[in-house]
Nucleic acid binder design. Structure first.
Length: 260
DNA sequence: ATTCTTGTTGAATG
DNA sequence: GCATTCAACAAGAA
């Protein structure tokens, strides 16, 4: 389930496992995910080591000592597994073996993830039209960004070129927590609603990240977990409804989130 | 068997 | 130029 909180989790995971360990070999069981040649990947990676992991939106950058970045996008089903196992787990698309024999496996059953090499994080983000990270926004910036947007608030929140990191599920969650109908036009939001939405955006992303890291389940009043038409609303006695917005299944409670 | 899905991209359309 | 919808990508789940 890779939106911003899940990528934050993998950043921590890499930080605590795969840094400062010399890369001995590169393995590419599923070449289509790697957006460069295998030879290129080997040349840039073998012999170096990662110094830190940086998350931006739904991307994770592993910075190596030689100044390059190995970049992961997790698609819908990507995940990491760091272990000393010799056999790659099922659906491993790519992995690195380190000097001490440990391995970082990138597992991607649906093969919708992507792996890149880049020399510049900023250039990479520009090339891929990735906006500012959701957690880097100030309230004012958020306000100004939404002010000029057309279309639905849900569309704006999930547009990676505007705000990086928010996906389908947590966009629904923020709107539910704020009591805003997903189809609302951003220009119809009151100043108060935009303020609240900003606060809930940060709160939802941080809460989910924290709970993921600690293994706790999400708060009882969260919509996530009740994503099913007809489910009981966790906040009122309404029933959850689903509608397609921008092609994505959008869940909301018509009692809590009134259409304007 | 059919439909659904947390993600992105590109084409077609309004 | 903008926003939306749809299809495609792929494979597991229901």
């Amino acid at each position: 389930m890779p939106e911003l909180p899940e990528i934050s989790y993998y950043k921590k995971y890499v930080d605590s496992t795969a840094l400062h360990n010399k890369i001995r070999s590169v393995h590419v069981p599923v070449p289509k995910l790697l957006q460069t040649s295998e030879k290129d990947a080997e040349e840039h990676l073998i012999g170096t080591e990662f110094t830190k992991a940086i998350r931006h939106g739904k991307y994770l950058f592993l910075e190596s000592k030689n100044g390059n970045y190995l970049v992961f996008h997790f698609g819908m089903t990507g995940k990491f597994d760091f272990s000393h196992e010799d056999d790659p787990p099922k659906y491993t698309a790519f992995y690195l073996m380190f000097e001490d024999g440990a391995k970082l496996f990138f597992i991607c059953p649906r093969k919708l993830g992507k792996i890149y090499l880049t020399e510049s994080k900023d250039d990479f983000l520009k090339e891929h039209s990735i906006g500012k990270d959701a957690l880097d926004f100030s309230k004012d910036e958020f306000k100004h960004l939404l002010y000029k947007k057309r279309g639905s608030i849900k569309g704006a929140l999930t547009n990676q070129s505007l705000i990086a990191g928010i996906g389908n599920m947590y966009a629904d969650e923020m709107l539910f927590q704020t009591g805003i109908h997903p189809k609302t036009s951003p220009s119809d939001l009151s100043e108060d609603e935009v303020n609240q939405l900003y606060d809930k955006m940060i709160e939802v992303l941080e809460t989910v990240s924290d709970r993921k890291a600690s293994g706790e389940s999400l708060p009882d009043n969260y919509l996530t977990g009740h994503r099913e038409p007809g489910a009981d609303c966790p906040k009122s006695n309404g029933k959850i409804e689903m509608m397609k917005i921008s092609g994505r299944s959008t869940y909301f409670c018509p009692a809590c989130q009134k259409e304007k």
